[in-house]
Design a protein around this nucleic acid. Structure first.
Ligand SMILES: [Mn+2]
Ligand SMILES: [Mn+2]
Ligand SMILES: [Zn+2]
Ligand SMILES: [Zn+2]
Lengths: 177, 177
DNA sequence: TTTTAGTTGGTAGTTATTCCCAGGTGGTAA
DNA sequence: TTACCACCTGGGAATAACTACCAACTAAAA
């Protein structure tokens, strides 16, 4: 107990149900209208276990909601982050990825396939000895990113990581011409 | 000793001198030409203490090198990352930021002004109990991002973080018409 | 039901980055 | 020293990922 732990399917299913159920109340509390678009987007986000990008959420929502616009998806995801109903995951410089899991947790990134996994890391949370300040800085949050190579990528990626060979003038065949 | 520690000016000056001196040899070792552009870019990167973006490096390099192109700056910074002479810092979804400091260290991000500071965090490096695997994953690296509010931003930012007020229909003056 | 602040969906930008390729250059070998 | 050429560069065009704008629409207060 206490060590790094991945979050299971069961936990995820229960968490999703809870959050979807509470969503309407949460919006009203914040003075936001409960529109079909917002409901569809939070459902898609909470059903995803892959930290999807806006365009992926868009594709998934469109299956039930063919008229939704990409602009609305971008806008809404950003709103969810502002209101604390989603997290933006910034491990890579590609499109922003969103996380519907707002419980405290950290991320494991496979540098090969760039998939992102959730991990609970209780020992990280005491990292700063529960202090509230660090010099002039007021501490807010501490996020850990663990870079790994997943099973799949380890098997495939036999690409040598060594320095690339020095450039070589092609052998000038003396017997030419 | 052993706790979080910021890196000083002295350390930085010495480190920069060392790295600039070694740069030519390092390129030749990798089979890369030592061009004036590459030298100018590594110097600019190592002189920066602010984790600059490509366009900022471009602006600084252009002072000595007015003909350099932005494309070359992007290309070269990316090469440096590939060859392990720079790190890409991905704490935010804005332009990518580059770090000439390739010694193991972590980052402190002010969520107000978005400045990034280096920090040594020895206790973080033992976070995973020096293990090499985590389930199916081969561990490579562990990066910590500490989100803070810096002194400046704390003083300025008195903007309330509470829920925004519920929408209010303007009071319908009963005495109207 | 009426009213309206809040919300949406196209379209047209914008920003950061990458692609392409003709012309230039550092490094090697003679 | 010089010739050679694989590698490198600069500028423009292209792309990806947002972001601004605004007229039409709608959730929800009254
Ligand atoms: Mn997550
Ligand atoms: Mn750094
Ligand atoms: Zn992988
Ligand atoms: Zn600040």
């Amino acid at each position: 107990m206490g060590g790094p732990a991945f979050l299971g399917k069961q936990w995820h299913a229960r968490y999703r149900a809870q959050r979807v159920a509470e969503f309407g109340a949460y919006c009203r509390e914040q003075g936001l209208a409960v529109t079909p678009q917002r409901v569809a987007i939070i459902r898609a986000l909470l059903s995803a276990e892959d930290h999807p990008r806006a365009d992926q959420i868009y594709a998934r929502v469109r299956r039930q909601h063919p008229h939704i616009s990409l602009t609305t998806v971008y806008r809404t995801l950003e709103q969810f982050c502002e209101m604390g109903q989603a997290r933006k995951v910034t491990l890579l410089h590609e499109g922003a990825r969103y996380d519907g899991n707002i419980t405290p947790h950290h991320h494991v990134l496979c540098v090969g396939c760039q998939r992102v996994f959730d991990i609970a890391l209780p020992e990280a949370d005491g990292l700063l000895h529960d202090r509230e300040r660090l010099g002039e800085f007021v501490l807010l949050r501490c996020l850990v990113e663990i870079q790994v190579l997943c099973g799949q990528c380890r098997r495939k990626g036999q690409n040598s990581t060594g320095a690339r060979p020095r450039r070589q003038r092609p052998v000038q065949s003396a017997a030419q011409s």
